[in-house]
């Protein structure tokens, strides 16, 4: 099949750019650990309230782990538990979340924390919260009439102040 010389240049340039993008995200994901939230842990969604750690939603300090805090979140129509959380700036936090009913979203505005919560599955994400501020969490997957009222607030604060 004959390709015009310029088309060869273009396809080479185009495929080259795509390969570059893939290398950048691939290194970020597999070498630096910036993977999208992909936990495969499961749970009985009807028993969420009775199972550790979801029986006690909230922020807990942990030791001996790669992160400083665990933030356990339980979503249900149309709220998150806890509704508000205060996090010392600079801490590495593992967010562990699930839903008690339908699919919910979990998007923390202004951050890369953005994951789906699906019944029967636990969603997890680890990040270092290095910027002070108030971050609104919204449900970004349609879950019913009250979907747009579903929210939570992160307050990343400087504890020394």
């Amino acid at each position: 099949m004959h390709l015009h010389r310029y088309e060869k240049w273009w396809i080479t340039f185009g495929i080259g750019s795509l390969v570059l993008f893939l290398i950048i995200v691939g290194i970020g994901a597999f070498h630096q650990g910036h993977q999208p939230p992909s936990s495969v842990k499961t749970i009985n969604y009807e028993q969420v309230d009775k199972v550790t750690p979801f029986n006690e939603p909230g922020l807990t300090k942990v030791s001996g782990k790669d992160w400083d805090y665990e933030l356990v979140v339980v979503a249900s129509a149309f709220m998150y538990m806890p509704a508000e959380v205060e996090i010392p700036v600079g801490s590495t936090v593992k967010i562990i979340a699930t839903t008690k009913d339908v699919v919910h979203g979990y998007g923390v505005t202004g951050t890369n924390i953005n994951m789906m919560l699906e019944p029967g599955y636990i969603s997890e994400y680890v990040t270092t919260m290095d910027k002070i501020g108030e971050y609104l969490v919204v449900c970004n997957e349609y879950c019913g009439t009250g979907h747009h009222t579903m929210k939570m607030m992160y307050k990343v604060v400087d504890v020394n102040e």
Binding site: H4, Y6, W9, W10, F13
Partner: peptide
């Protein structure tokens, strides 16, 4: 000649 005439295309796609 043919390639000369596709110069605009080359610039556009790039």
């Amino acid at each position: 000649e043919e390639e000369q005439s596709l110069k605009g295309t080359l610039y556009a796609v790039f």
